[in-house]
Design a protein around this nucleic acid. Structure first.
Length: 491
RNA sequence: GGCCCCUUCGUCUAGCCUGGUCCAGGACACUAGGUUUUCAUCCUAGUAACACGGGUUCAAAUCCCGUAGGGGUCACCA
């Protein structure tokens, strides 16, 4: 009887040196999906052999973001392994390699001898052969006694019975080393699957340093010499590229009113994208199910994901398309669900709106369901609901108020009187009032009334439907804004 | 620079393995028109790509070679 193949085991093994970025998230997603597809296990592990840069905080943040995405490791229950806590394992492996004559010391570090040609098969890039002459002896144990990444991954993956290693393409060149290590250790090699990189629209690699880069450039362009809450020395260090602190980048962005590029999963959450949308878009960056299917969920991926449809070339991250996906899912939500989601997000991000809008929040939400690409959009588009206009767009005033000898202003004045008498301040009747007034005026276009009103209420000519807009604002505020506008714009 | 990898509309991609059904399909973006009280939604239509040069073949986006461009890697980082 032939031995049945070992159960599929994949893993996501980030180094806890920073936030989870989209590239990592996609790797995790692919690993998760492959394991699910084959009824296997998806494991997590922290690769913290870099003692200087690793932190527990980073571990927590990565886990938080993974969970937000809906990806959980099957070994979280028993505790996620940390390489720093498995030194015995590496030392044992090292001893074995040493005994077999595979290693030699080099200034306190230990190197592994290469020399033979190495061949392996990658699930995406196919057969790879590297001549021994191109392979250098490499360090497997640092002078501090810690294993290097190369030794640790191999030992851990073997120990955890990982059958499929899915990781970024930058590891392709490391793979001959890993293959040689598996062989020397007498362990079966896993299937390697290297994924292409995710790039910025300008073609550069999307990296966690992009935020620092953008902030630095903006600070230099603005010849910024001081930043609130940032120490002078730290700022100087940041500006001279001595560090890439995201905190400093964020402080600069706040001071300059700059929008930093979204790179990390948390950035996209912050910007008002939902996990389902991010995951869907990310999956499509480098993989596709064939056919012309683009919109799908985790279940679909768990049923259809496979390596053979992963592309070989790098792809650029297209925010417009992400936004379109997001808008699409918002449109498909029931009004109740949308209002619930939006309120939860606003409580967290824009509490002032929740406070000010009060019971009107669902009306506010409904007004912006068709107008939002993200959960953040209503905070920008609907700012006038919480802040009265302080100035009026000149073009809008000219077109909607002043034109035809102040026709708009006159209409606004008569509308004000009608609205002042209104008792039922809800969208439907309010709409009816304007509708009636328009007919009474014998106008051919309701805009003759609605547009002057919009200018008065928002300072410009854009708002949701006029009925809900009035309802949300409330009678007192509406009248006050009309008066302010008449005073300001009426000559 | 050495070694390795990649190259279809502006972008993500289908098609390539198993040449003909591809004067190349979908999506996002863009443009035009329609619906509409503004914006948006929605509907309709449209622009737009096989990097280049050689082969092989009756026939090439698909196979082969070369060139160019892009990416990765060459750490006691992962």
């Amino acid at each position: 009887m032939p031995a049945s193949p070992p159960p599929v085991v994949t893993r996501f093994a980030p180094s806890p040196t920073g936030e989870l970025h989209v590239g990592g998230a996609r790797t995790a997603l692919f690993s998760w999906a492959y394991a699910r597809r084959h009824g296997g296990q998806f494991l997590l592990r922290f690769e913290d052999t870099d003692q200087k840069r690793s932190s527990k905080q980073a571990e927590q943040n990565i886990l938080r973001d993974l969970h937000w995405l809906g990806l959980t490791g099957d070994n979280e229950g028993e505790g996620i392994p940390r390489q720093s806590e498995r030194l015995d394992l590496y030392h044992a492996a090292l001893a074995k390699l040493k005994d077999a004559g595979h290693t030699y010391e080099d200034n306190g570090a230990v190197r592994f001898k290469m020399g033979q040609d190495v061949s392996f098969t990658d699930a995406v890039y196919g057969d790879v052969t590297v001549p021994g002459a191109d392979l250098e002896d490499f360090v497997i144990q640092k002078a501090d006694g810690f294993p290097t990444f190369h030794l640790a991954v191999v030992v851990d993956d073997a120990d955890m019975h990982v059958t499929h290693v899915i990781r970024g393409q930058e590891h392709l060149a490391n793979t001959p080393k890993h293959a040689a290590l598996y062989d020397a250790l007498g362990k079966p090699r896993p299937v390697w699957c290297h994924t292409p990189s995710i790039m910025n629209p300008d073609g550069s690699k999307m990296s966690k340093r992009d935020k620092a880069k953008a902030a630095r450039k903006a600070a230099q362009d603005a010849t910024l010499s001081q930043v609130q809450d940032v120490d002078q020395a730290d700022l100087a260090a940041f500006l001279s590229k001595d560090n890439d602190s995201n905190d400093i980048a964020a402080a600069i962005a706040t001071q300059l009113g700059l929008q930093l590029p979204e790179i990390n999963v948390a950035d996209f959450q912050h910007s008002g994208y939902t996990p389902a949308v991010l995951l869907n878009y990310l999956a499509l960056l480098g993989w596709n199910p064939g056919d012309d299917v683009e919109r799908f969920d985790l279940d679909f991926l768990a049923q259809h994901f496979d390596f053979d449809r992963i592309g070989k070339s790098n792809s650029k991250f297209d925010r417009d398309k992400l936004a379109a996906f997001s808008q699409d899912t918002i449109l498909k939500l029931s009004p109740e669900q949308w209002a619930t989601n939006l309120q939860a997000h606003f409580k967290d991000r824009f509490p002032a709106y929740v406070e000010k809008l009060g019971a009107n929040f669902p009306v506010f939400a409904a007004a912006y369901q068709e107008r939002s690409k993200t959960l953040n959009d209503p905070s920008v588009l609907g700012r006038f609901f919480v802040e009265a206009p302080t100035q009026y767009n000149a073009k809008a005033v000219k077109k909607n108020l002043n034109k035809n000898e102040g026709e708009g202003l006159k209409n606004l004045q008569s509308l004000r009187d009608l609205l002042a008498q209104q008792t039922d301040w809800t969208a439907q009747p309010l709409h009816a009032v304007i509708d009636g007034a328009w007919e009474a005026l014998g106008g051919k276009n309701m805009g003759a009334l609605a547009q002057p009103l919009r200018v008065a209420l928002t300072g410009a000519a854009v708002s949701p439907e006029i009925g809900p807009t009035l309802e949300i604002l409330g009678q007192t505020e509406t009248l006050a804004r009309i008066d302010a506008c008449l005073l300001h714009c009426g000559s």
